[in-house]
Simulated scan of single mutants.
Amino acid sequence: MTTITITITLNGEARQAPGGSTLADLLETSGQPPASFASAVNGEFVARDARAQTLLVEGDAVFTFQAITGG
């Protein structure tokens, strides 16, 4: 059985991920605690509680960033 991989970018760097990966799966492998940053896929903000339901596809551009709070 052949495992399908997809190519996405994480913060501008090309990465391979297994087909069927979610945003949560990808962020767990980033080396940073997933709760410490916000995320976006193709320029659209993805809430932390939606990451596990956000399926990644070939060519997606994922960005992580520190959330800015204050007033």
Results as ranks from 00 to 15, higher is better:
Gln66Thr: 15
Val46Phe: 02
Gly71Leu: 03
Leu23Cys: 10
Ser36Cys: 01
Ala14Pro: 07
Ala40Phe: 01
Arg15Glu: 02
Glu44Tyr: 03
Leu23Arg: 06
Phe37Met: 09
Gly43Lys: 02
Gln66Arg: 15
Glu28Leu: 14
Ala17Gly: 06
Glu28Ser: 11
Ser39Trp: 08
Ala50His: 15
Asp49Ile: 03
Ala52Lys: 14
Gly12His: 01
Phe45Thr: 11
Pro18Ser: 08
Gln16Asp: 01
Thr64Ala: 05
Gln66Val: 12
Val62Asn: 04
Ala61Gln: 08
Thr2Trp: 01
Ala52Pro: 01
Ser30Cys: 05
Thr2Pro: 13
Leu55Asp: 13
Pro18Cys: 01
Gly70Glu: 04
Gly70Asp: 02
Thr54Cys: 03
Leu10Pro: 13
Ala14Ser: 11
Met1Ile: 12
Ile6Glu: 14
Gly19Cys: 04
Leu27Met: 08
Asp49Glu: 07
Ile8Glu: 13
Ser21Val: 10
Val41Lys: 07
Ala24Gly: 03
Glu28Val: 10
Ala14His: 06
Leu27Cys: 04
Ala38Asp: 00
Ala35Ser: 13
Ala50Ser: 14
Thr5Trp: 15
Asn42Lys: 00
Val62Phe: 10
Gln66Phe: 01
Arg15Tyr: 07
Asp25Lys: 03
Ile4Trp: 07
Gln66Tyr: 00
Thr9Arg: 08
Ala52Leu: 00
Thr54Asp: 01
Gly19Val: 07
Gly70Asn: 02
Glu13Trp: 11
Glu58Pro: 06
Ala38Tyr: 04
Thr29Asn: 09
Pro33Glu: 12
Ser21Asn: 05
Ile8Gln: 01
Ile4Leu: 13
Gly43Asp: 05
Val57Ile: 12
Gly12Trp: 06
Thr69Gln: 12
Leu27Lys: 06
Leu55Asn: 06
Val62Lys: 02
Leu10Val: 03
Met1Lys: 13
Asp49Pro: 00
Ile4His: 15
Glu28Arg: 15
Pro34Asp: 01
Arg15Gly: 08
Glu58Asn: 05
Asn11Gly: 02
Gln53Cys: 02
Thr3Cys: 10
Arg15Cys: 09
Ala52His: 09
Thr7Gly: 04
Ala14Cys: 04
Ala38Asn: 02
Ala14Trp: 05
Thr3Met: 15
Phe65Trp: 07
Ile4Glu: 09
Asn11Cys: 04
Ala61Phe: 00
Gly20Val: 08
Phe37Gly: 01
Ala24Asn: 08
Gly43Arg: 06
Ala40Ile: 02
Ala67Glu: 07
Asn42Ser: 00
Ala40His: 04
Gln16Pro: 04
Thr22Gln: 07
Pro33Lys: 15
Asp60Gln: 01
Leu26Lys: 00
Gly19Ala: 15
Gln32Gly: 05
Leu55Tyr: 08
Thr54Lys: 08
